[in-house]
Design a binder for these strands. Structure first.
Lengths: 178, 178
DNA sequence: ACCTGAACACCGTTCAAGT
DNA sequence: ACCTGAACACCGTTCAAGT
């Protein structure tokens, strides 16, 4: 007689996602996830291969959500503001996806590629098709570095961080526009 | 009768530093460090408070070395190339210092501030004193994001990464120059 | 004064035994 | 077919006992 299912993969990923924001990557333990979904740790292995795979699933869920939001942006400033807002909303997930350490499980290539289409579209509009890739990389590298530093509290020399963000957007858009 | 010292704090930090590059942050275990310096794990606690403090010491050693190299740069391109070369030489240490995750031990504030003086000096020369801080943040955010993405293999859409780097420097320097 | 084995509280993961 | 306790190999850290 089969036991009824006491949890689902979606519930497990959601619990891991919440634990990630609350306690950081190291806080995402199989025991912690198990408690949240109401089973014992060994039961999780019926639905997910291991902890690395679970982290990868959280990374992919994060990128899919981010991609959906970026795709809705019509211009560079909106796109970059959306990106930054996502980082502030889910700082740990942002770091997991954008600046994973060595050994950190990483999202599938296709999921990652999809996240680039919005910035490529907008960069092509500003810089032209020839320089679209380089312009997209300039904008992406800047925004990713800026948001990472902001989340890490790395802007330590005073000044207005919002002003630095606006300064960056204005000068970058100007620089890449033909 | 006292036992002769079998290791030193410097040797412990150096072993941790090497393990970091070889096996990543998770690979820096007290047991692993102990084996490298020729003692048992409990003995390490005579010289360093705990693992977090050891990681912090590695972060500070990394920043001091990086600061020394950046201070020697005379112009923006040299500074940025030096920064990128350091990232490629010590990728795990670069990530530890520039994009630490939540809960990762972080260098002392004074050590971090010292690493900013070179970029501030050069930014002031290009953008003027009024915009020096914003310009420094633009350059730093871009370079940090670019190098992080490069180390993570995040440039996945083909194209020439060196060309994207040169494109970035040229357009940024142009953008912030009065 | 430094070093060590033993111990404790955690991890991730496996597996036989339950329902 | 799913769930669990028990077990194993790891961690970081403490501490009494050795020299």
């Amino acid at each position: 007689m089969p036991t009824p299912d006491r949890t689902t993969l979606d519930a497990i990923v959601a619990a891991a996602r919440d634990l990630l924001e609350e306690d950081g990557l190291a806080g995402v333990t199989m025991q912690g996830v198990a408690v949240r979904v109401g089973v014992r740790a060994p039961s999780l292995y019926k639905r997910v291969e291991n902890r690395d795979r679970l982290i990868q699933l959280v990374a992919e869920e994060t990128l899919l959500e981010l991609t959906a939001r970026l795709d809705a942006a019509a211009d560079a400033r909106t796109l970059l503001d959306t990106y930054r807002a996502f980082g502030k909303e889910r700082p740990a997930a942002f770091r997991l996806v954008m600046t994973p350490g060595a050994g950190t499980p990483v999202a599938d290539t296709a999921v990652q590629a999809a996240a680039s289409t919005a910035i490529l579209r907008i960069s092509a509009g500003l810089a032209g098709e020839t320089d679209a890739l380089e312009a997209a990389r300039l904008l992406t590298a800047w925004a990713t570095g800026f948001i990472s530093m902001e989340l890490n509290g790395a802007f330590r020399l005073g000044g207005d961080i919002d002003r630095a963000w606006d300064y960056g957007i204005a000068h970058l858009v100007d620089a890449i526009t033909r």
